[in-house]
Design a protein around this nucleic acid. Sequence first.
DNA 1: AATATTATAGAAAACGTTTTCTATAATAAG
DNA 2: CTTATTATAGAAAACGTTTTCTATAATATT
Lengths: 340, 340
Amino acid sequence: MNVTIKEVAKKANVSITTVSRVFNGNDGVSPKTRKRVLKVIEELGYSPSAMASGLKTNLSKCIGIAVPDALGDFYGEIIDGIESVTAEKGYNVIISLNHRIIKEELAGVNFFKAKKVDGAILVTTSGDDDYIHSLIEGGYNIVLLDRDPHSLNVDTVKIDNFGGGYMATEYLLNLGHSSILVIQGIPFIDSSKERFNGYKRALKNKGIKIKSQFVLNGNFTVDSGYLSVKKYLDNYGLDFSAIFATNDQMAIGAIKALNDKGISIPEQVSIVGFDDSYISPYIIPPLTTIKQRREEMGKIAAELLLDRIISGHKKGRTPRQVIIPVELIKRESAISLSSK
Amino acid sequence: MNVTIKEVAKKANVSITTVSRVFNGNDGVSPKTRKRVLKVIEELGYSPSAMASGLKTNLSKCIGIAVPDALGDFYGEIIDGIESVTAEKGYNVIISLNHRIIKEELAGVNFFKAKKVDGAILVTTSGDDDYIHSLIEGGYNIVLLDRDPHSLNVDTVKIDNFGGGYMATEYLLNLGHSSILVIQGIPFIDSSKERFNGYKRALKNKGIKIKSQFVLNGNFTVDSGYLSVKKYLDNYGLDFSAIFATNDQMAIGAIKALNDKGISIPEQVSIVGFDDSYISPYIIPPLTTIKQRREEMGKIAAELLLDRIISGHKKGRTPRQVIIPVELIKRESAISLSSK
DNA sequence: AATATTATAGAAAACGTTTTCTATAATAAG
DNA sequence: CTTATTATAGAAAACGTTTTCTATAATATT
């Protein structure tokens, strides 16, 4: 069904070698022949079988991306970023859900050993260090996204979670707030931990002691933000004037919980989120938050990975770690305490 | 670097034929030998090169999915659904952004002609009929998602957009509303058109004439919902009591616009959306909306596609069209007109 | 006991490329 | 004018599988 290199060769009256050379832009063929072959390629709509060439070159021209089970808008943007750079270099991206590639050995096999991908971008939690370590040892090209490399000898791109947490908290502090609730995400995810650390540091720098009851446990879902604040309110009442939610979704949940109790935002409670999700300008009140550039993250990760793939993975090359800066987006959900 | 079938054969003292037979569960090998080979496969961690076997079988064990440029949470769920069924059958999914596969011929070539995918799920607008037609003619396995097949001879899975639009409007009507604004999505996208048609039909069935100024033009973004309602309010003031937004994002934008003018929801204006996005229970007030099961959509699409691939695409087989029912989720953003 | 059948296994071809190695023709150098 | 060099091109091997075809051993049938 598909046209092969042989048919092109035949029609152009050359050997398949020549066709291959023409298609790949290699030299050893005269301008005249090249032109003729090019014409036939065009006419027949030839394009080489990725499998056949991959078999020879040992390159699939695909990279993998493994993302956590629940795809949110969060990952969509990352994938967007990745795809934009890979497409340019003729690479495709195969997507796999984390639990398949990490948890079940089977899929990891499918991914790497079957040579379906030349490398992969992993968005995993820090619990998967052993698996990743073995992948690196195996010579597979890996870049980690949105998590700490720990002691792993691997390229990483992440955003400045600590800085963002610090920035958010400092902003509330400068607004005059000192009783600031924090809603943590999933505690064993690095980004969550680091945002929380930013919070702690900011308080510490102002000489404010961290009240342990002020740290609520969420899991990055809207619902967890809602539930944790509701519970806090039930237990302690309104003994705080601000909330730092470690993502926007939980911030939205928190707003709902406050609203349910008739507490007005930002008049009675200021709130700042993290992520700058597409919805945050439109919630009521518009959410002050830390903006992270997810598409950029994807782009950079893809660039690091392709660089490693194309340059031939010199194992042991010193790992690169890029941290993407974040930005405070001031909207209306946080105001000065004195203006209450 | 990777272990090949040869090494397995050598270590197990059999021919590569036998190894192949064992791995693929074909007969022609005694239980004893099978066991021994299996053991070696395990020890060496062998898994066949997808490229080599694909070259022979002419199957890549990958399917493609082409989605519109901006990935939202919407597509994440679809991909989730697709992946859950493909993974089970040993297929991977390659993702491509629409403009690459459709608009630039180059990427389409990469996708299909290079034999990187055995079939694809296309989430496209209805403007791409010609391209899709040529793909079908070329014998490629295709299923269309979330759009009308028109005259195309192709499998399709979509949700009941018309029914949903009807349901939403009827609900508002039964609540006593008769002046109902509608916010359209991108007009040349089938799902938008159909939801709007549902609206029209519901009004017509009640004998209510459609006021042309009541139909606002959005483009499915939050911002377009916000802007169109804001503009309407500026021009005509509050001469309606309800809004049907053809997706949740525009509903959220609409709520913001109303809120900005001090109009309270649902007391002064009832509103119903479409999608049941994860955020809708948490916006204020919680959004009444039409729920569509996107993951289900992805699952079914994948099943249709794999069925076609595995059964060997008998070209010309009658196309199947599955329509997934929707459901009205009653929350707090729409109330009876009399309870005003 | 001879023959037909079946179970088990391997040899070799094939899939569509890339690449190395060789051969010829054209040009440059002496 | 011969010889060295370079440009151009093809033949053939190789990549790692699957599959067809053939061969032998084991068992069943007469």
